[in-house]
Computed example of a mutant assay.
Amino acid sequence: MTKLTRESLVNRLFNDPKNYPYGFSRSGDFSINESKALSQYGALIAALVDGEISPSTPEDESFLASAFGKQDPKSIAEKAWLKYQKRINRPKMGSIYGSHKASVDIDSESTDEDDDIPIELDDE
C-alpha cells in the first residue's frame, strides 16, 4: 500500500459519486470556484479529518480547525468543504403518508346512492 502524502492528495481529484454522481459543478449546490476547490482539496481535507495524515502546514491546520468548527472558514476550500458536509449530512425528508403509498379503492370510496345524479338523454 502506498503511503499517503500531502502532494499526492492535492493532485488527486476528489469526487463523490454516491451523493453527486454528475460532479460538484453540475449539481447546482456549488459555485464554479467552490466546485473547483472541493475537487482539488477535498481528498486532502477528508484525509486530514479522518486522521489518515497529520497536518504538516499552517494551511492544513486551518483546514482542520474550520472542519471541526474551531474557527470560521477563511479560504474558498474551507467554505466549500463545510457546505459539502452540510449538504451530504442533511436529514432526509420523510413522507407525510408514512413509508407506504396510500392506496384508494375506487369501489368502496362512495356507496351512498344519494350522490348519484340521474342523466336524462333525449332520443330526438
Score class of each variant (00 low, 15 high):
residue 46 A to H: 12
residue 22 Y to G: 08
residue 48 L to E: 10
residue 74 K to G: 03
residue 114 D to V: 09
residue 50 D to C: 06
residue 88 I to Q: 00
residue 91 P to C: 05
residue 45 I to N: 01
residue 85 Q to S: 02
residue 31 S to W: 10
residue 6 R to M: 05
residue 14 F to T: 14
residue 81 W to A: 01
residue 110 S to N: 13
residue 59 E to Y: 01
residue 10 V to A: 05
residue 31 S to N: 11
residue 23 G to I: 03
residue 122 D to W: 05
residue 30 F to G: 06
residue 54 S to K: 14
residue 74 K to S: 11
residue 103 S to V: 13
residue 83 K to G: 00
residue 72 D to G: 08
residue 5 T to I: 03
residue 35 S to V: 06
residue 74 K to Q: 12
residue 106 I to Q: 06
residue 11 N to C: 05
residue 8 S to M: 13
residue 101 K to F: 11
residue 51 G to E: 12
residue 86 K to W: 09
residue 46 A to R: 14
residue 96 I to V: 14
residue 85 Q to L: 01
residue 119 I to T: 12
residue 104 V to R: 12
residue 118 P to S: 14
residue 115 D to R: 07
residue 80 A to N: 02
residue 51 G to C: 12
residue 80 A to D: 00
residue 100 H to R: 14
residue 73 P to D: 05
residue 30 F to D: 09
residue 11 N to K: 14
residue 57 T to E: 04
residue 86 K to S: 15
residue 4 L to S: 03
residue 21 P to T: 03
residue 106 I to E: 12
residue 77 A to S: 10
residue 51 G to F: 11
residue 80 A to E: 02
residue 50 D to A: 13
residue 25 S to W: 06
residue 97 Y to G: 15
residue 67 A to E: 03
residue 24 F to L: 01
residue 30 F to R: 03
residue 7 E to G: 04
residue 105 D to V: 10
residue 113 E to A: 12
residue 27 S to R: 07
residue 77 A to V: 07
residue 105 D to E: 10
residue 104 V to T: 11
residue 116 D to K: 15
residue 43 A to E: 13
residue 105 D to P: 07
residue 23 G to F: 06
residue 121 L to V: 08
residue 5 T to D: 06
residue 114 D to R: 06
residue 10 V to N: 08
residue 27 S to W: 10
residue 14 F to Q: 09
residue 102 A to S: 09
residue 84 Y to I: 01
residue 71 Q to R: 02
residue 23 G to S: 07
residue 60 D to V: 04
residue 19 N to S: 05
residue 40 Q to E: 15
residue 114 D to H: 09
residue 48 L to T: 02
residue 12 R to Q: 15
residue 67 A to P: 08
residue 88 I to K: 00
residue 106 I to R: 09
residue 96 I to R: 12
residue 71 Q to G: 00
residue 65 A to T: 04
residue 94 G to H: 13
residue 62 S to H: 07
residue 33 N to V: 04
residue 52 E to M: 08
residue 66 S to Y: 02
residue 112 D to F: 05
residue 25 S to L: 09
residue 96 I to K: 14
residue 116 D to W: 13
residue 100 H to C: 09
residue 51 G to D: 11
residue 19 N to Q: 07
residue 124 E to N: 12
residue 77 A to H: 06
residue 116 D to L: 15
residue 37 A to F: 02
residue 46 A to L: 12
residue 55 P to S: 05
residue 1 M to C: 03
residue 101 K to H: 13
residue 12 R to I: 13
residue 89 N to H: 12
residue 35 S to N: 05
residue 71 Q to V: 00
residue 110 S to G: 07
residue 109 E to P: 00
residue 26 R to C: 05
residue 33 N to H: 02
residue 73 P to C: 03
residue 22 Y to K: 15
residue 9 L to I: 04
residue 109 E to C: 06
residue 1 M to D: 10
residue 16 D to L: 02
residue 87 R to W: 03
residue 119 I to L: 15
residue 92 K to N: 09
residue 73 P to R: 04
residue 6 R to N: 04
residue 75 S to E: 04
residue 39 S to K: 10
residue 25 S to Q: 11
residue 64 L to W: 01
residue 70 K to C: 01
residue 86 K to H: 13
residue 36 K to N: 15
residue 86 K to L: 12
residue 81 W to D: 00
residue 2 T to M: 09
residue 91 P to W: 02
residue 30 F to N: 04
